[in-house]
Design a protein around this nucleic acid. Structure first.
Length: 564
RNA sequence: CGGGGUAUAGCGUAGCCCGGCUAGCGCGCCUGGUUUGGGACCAGGAGGUCGCAGGUUCGAAUCCUGCUACCCCGACCA
């Protein structure tokens, strides 16, 4: 493709609205443009990337026997009413104003609709049906550019099986296909077991990629692959040891000391010698939670331990319940249920609040002084702590969900009457699975994982072009001539090449654009090297530069691409 | 939906508190010339309902009211 005739509107400055790197670079590189909040147009270069990602997905889906469909985005609302999901989606579903149609946010109902008409016998299964299409969700807050939009491209596949054993097979095939897809596009990903949420069903896994633009916080172990949402993740830590001798309880004046750090500084003690207090309201009753030092309470774990919803007590409530403000609350004299984190189980000689402002208490022995105390795992795992599976250090970071595979079971087939006859002649609901991949997220995550200050660094599998040919000074006859010749040679050799043949752009300008656009290989044709019958290659990823002879250039380049 | 912020030329911005604007600057764009290996230089030029509507005032980009759009944090998220 000739750049002089292409629409690639690059931007030198960072657009005001863009924050996350992938968004900034796609905008600056002329890959996408926003139309409205969460609605983007893919420009020619961006669409090439979309097509490449889709093609990889398509190949891997076809490889496990998937059959591609093209399904309507415009759906009669009544189909969605059969499964109660008009209500379940609520405001997230787009409704048309002048007809009882909705815009499909996913396609389980449509697949089930077709399945119930034609899949009538156990002999018709298994089936894997998929589509790569635009879906619509009225997100309350679109964000991070292309990562969370109101309109987005999604590969969704649906498996139809006669029983759960069949579903397990389909599910595992998808699991394997997904690993291949994400590996092929060059992403560093990991897999988290997840709850299946509003989709219903029994088992599911999320395919995640670490990113600062992520919406979930996860704990992940590089060594063994353990991964869990931080809400449920556990970790191996050093518990606080009970000392052999318990001191007596004593009150200490601690004026204006509020935080654990201040307390430790004031008393010259270690945070492990302290018990931090948090008061939660559970079923209208106050519960005191004690954590070691600055350990964070994990509210999901707390809710699990208590079996019902919790909320932190308001400041006014704290005063009424304990007689003190946050910062001076503790177990001694607390009237109510007290639960401590396992890390400080049966500890002694601890410091905590006195339930009196500006006072703390030392020498607390949970066994002696707080006989009614209970213990539970309540802490939030932190980076560097031991993996619960293998003990190696865990990483805790935010991540983006790229793909999600579910075992749906018979939720939709039962609701919509999609049944088949077994070998014995019994009527049974089809057992289904549902498997999604966010196409834009694959692209955004690739950029999030692979860029530098200058721009994008595409993995060759999804780069819009493999080679960016830069004719440095196209006003010089030898350069223009050689560049043209090379361009044609590469095209004939089947190399995907973007040719910067602009005559009015200076060398520096072309270099900057090339780095921003991020093709894996830059082929630089300049006057000086040309005099020696050579051109220069720059590997975008490493910055490495090579001089290669004109003789046999196309073959050399193909070789280089191969090795990337 | 709750909280915060922003809206001035294609992009990035100054001016707004403290009204006097004929709205300034950089990039980009057009013309001519020079330049040509890391976002060139000189000269000339075009481009603005200052988000929209109303109000206050002799006078509003600037003050007030309402609305809209976009961004961020949170809630939500197949």
């Amino acid at each position: 493709m000739r750049q002089s005739k292409s629409f690639i509107p690059t931007l030198k400055e960072v657009p005001n609205d863009a924050v996350v790197p992938s968004h900034v670079l796609m905008l600056r590189g002329g890959y996408v443009r926003a139309l409205a909040a969460g609605i983007y147009s893919f420009l020619p270069l961006g669409y090439r990337v979309v097509k490449k990602v889709c093609e990889i997905i398509r190949q891997e889906m076809d490889a496990i026997g998937g059959q591609e469909f093209h399904l309507p985005a415009l759906n009669p609302k009544e189909i969605w009413e059969e499964t109660g999901r008009v209500q379940a989606f609520g405001d997230t579903m787009f409704h048309l104003k002048n007809r009882d149609y909705v815009l499909a946010p996913t396609h389980e109902e449509i697949i089930t609709f077709h399945a119930r008409k034609v899949v009538k016998s156990y002999k018709d299964m298994p089936q894997t049906w998929y589509q790569i299409q635009t879906k619509f969700r009225n997100e309350a807050r679109p964000r991070s550019g292309i990562i969370r939009g109101r309109q987005f491209l999604m590969k969704d596949s649906y498996s139809l099986d006669i029983d759960t054993a069949g579903l397990d097979v389909s599910y595992n095939l998808h699991d394997q296909a997904y690993r291949k897809i994400f590996t092929r596009v060059g992403l560093k990903f990991f897999v988290v077991g997840a709850s299946s949420g509003a989709m219903g069903g029994s088992g599911s896994e999320e395919f995640m990629v670490g990113s600062a633009a992520g919406e979930d916080t996860v704990a992940h172990c590089e060594a063994c692959g353990y991964a869990a949402n931080v809400e449920v993740a556990s970790s191996v830590i050093q518990p606080v040891q009970r000392e052999t001798e318990s001191k007596a309880v004593y009150e200490i004046s601690t004026p204006n000391i509020k935080s654990i750090d201040e307390l430790c500084g004031f008393l010259n003690i270690n945070e492990r010698q302290t018990a931090k207090s948090r008061v939660y309201i559970v079923d209208d009753k106050a519960v005191l939670i004690l954590m070691s030092g600055n350990d964070d309470v994990n509210e999901t774990k707390l809710e699990k331990a208590l079996g019902s919803g919790v909320r932190p007590a308001h400041p006014e409530e704290l005063k009424a319940i304990t007689g003190a403000d946050a910062g001076s609350i503790g177990p001694i004299g607390f009237n109510g249920r007290i639960i401590a984190d396992l890390r400080i189980k049966e500890c002694n000689n601890l410091f905590s609040g006195a339930n009196k402002n500006d006072y703390h208490i030392g020498g607390i022995d949970f066994v002696r002084d707080v006989p009614s105390i209970e213990y539970a795992d309540l802490r939030t795992a932190v980076s560097g702590e031991g993996c619960p599976k293998c003990g190696e250090p865990l990483g805790v970071f935010t991540a983006i969900e790229l793909g999600h595979i579910f075992k749906l079971g018979t939720k939709y087939s039962s609701a919509m009457g999609a049944t088949y006859l077994t070998e014995e002649g019994d009527e049974k609901p089809i057992v289904m699975g549902s498997y999604g991949i966010g196409v834009e997220r694959v692209i955004a995550c690739s950029i999030e994982q692979s860029h530098d200050e200058s721009g994008i660094i595409w993995n060759k599998s999804i780069a819009p072009f493999h080679v960016h040919l830069l004719g440095l000074n196209m006003k010089k006859e030898p350069v223009a001539e050689a560049s043209e010749k090379i361009y044609n040679e590469l095209l004939s050799a089947g190399v995907e090449v973007l040719f910067d043949d602009r005559i009015d752009a200076q060398a520096g300008f072309k270099f900057k654009d090339a780095d921003l656009l991020g093709m894996p290989i830059q082929l630089i044709v300049g006057e000086k090297k040309l005099a020696e019958s050579k051109v220069e290659v720059k590997i975008r990823k490493t910055g490495e530069r090579l001089e290669i002879p004109l003789e046999g250039l196309a073959a050399t380049i193909k070789d280089l691409i191969e090795k990337l």
